[in-house]
Nucleic acid binder design. Structure first.
Lengths: 123, 123
DNA sequence: TTCGTGTATCGATGATTGTCAATACTAAGA
DNA sequence: TCTTAGTATTGACAATCATCGATACACGAA
C-alpha cells in the first residue's frame, strides 16, 4: 500500500529539471549553428550521458517500468553514495524522474527527453 | 588546385575511429541492459559531445559541407592548440572526419555516426 | 519515542579535463 | 635551401569529477 507519494527530481531538493524547454525546441545540430547558451544547456545533458556507470544505470531504468535505488547498487557494483550521486545527475539532466514511496526511491526513464536529444543529433 | 589529399581522423596519427561497429550495432537504451564494454564505448562518444565548445564546433561543421580548422578559431574564440585538441576528440569519437589539403585541415561531419547515437537514445 | 533501514549530504582524494604558451612538425613558394 | 604559414604536440595549471567512508536525514514500525 502506498502511503506517501512525492514527485521529485532531486530527491530532497526543489524539483529542478534544467533546460526543459530549451532542449525541446532546439534545432538539429546540422541545421543552425548553436548559440553559447544552447550549447551549455545541451552539453550538460550529454555530460550526464558521458559516464559508463550512468549509461548502464539509465539502460537498466529504461528497460523496466521503474527501478528502486536499492536495486542498482549490486548490479552496478557501486556504493550507495555513488548510486545516489549518479541518479541525481541523471535526474538533473531530465533523463530520469524520481518518486519517493516511503523509504524507497523509485526511478523511471523520461523517453520524451531522450527523444529530444536524439532529434538534436538526428539528420 | 589540390596537390595532396590524405584521409585521416587524427591529423598526423593513424586513422583510428574507436568503437565503429560496436556503436553501429548497439541496441537502443531501453531495449537491453548495456554491457560494461558497450557502456564504455558509448560513454566516450557522449563525452566528446559533453563540451559546449565542441558542440558549437560540431554544429558549425555539420551546417556546412566542410570547414577548415583555421575558420574555427575566431568564432569559437579559442586558441589554435585548443581548436586542434577539440577537433581531435570529435574525430576520435567518429563524429567528424578530417582531410588534409596542403597546409589546411578540412573537417566534415559524419552523419551516420550521429544517427547511430540518436538511435541508441531513440524510442 | 525509539529502533531499523533506505537515501542524501559532507569531506577528502586521486584522476581526468579544458586551456594556452612554447615548440615541433608539415607543406608550399621563392 | 630558406622562409612563411597552418597544424599538432608538449608541458603546466586550475577546475571538475568519480568514488567512498562517515554522517545526517526521512520514514515506517514497534
Amino acid at each position: 500500500m502506498i502511503v506517501n507519494t512525492k514527485m521529485v527530481n532531486m530527491a530532497q531538493h526543489k524539483t529542478i529539471t534544467v533546460n526543459a524547454d530549451v532542449v525541446a525546441c532546439c534545432s538539429p545540430l546540422a541545421h543552425v549553428e548553436m548559440s553559447e547558451t544552447e550549447a551549455s544547456d545541451i552539453a550538460q545533458i550529454f555530460s550526464a550521458l558521458s559516464d559508463p556507470v550512468r549509461l548502464r544505470m539509465l539502460s537498466m531504468i529504461a528497460s523496466e517500468s521503474e527501478v528502486c535505488s536499492c536495486a542498482l547498487e549490486e548490479p552496478l557494483a557501486k556504493s550507495q553514495p555513488t548510486i545516489s550521486h549518479h541518479t541525481r545527475i541523471l535526474a538533473e539532466a531530465g533523463l530520469i524522474v524520481g518518486e519517493r514511496r516511503g523509504r524507497w526511491m523509485w526511478w523511471r526513464a523520461a523517453p520524451d527527453r531522450m527523444r529530444d536529444i536524439a532529434r538534436i543529433l538526428g539528420a
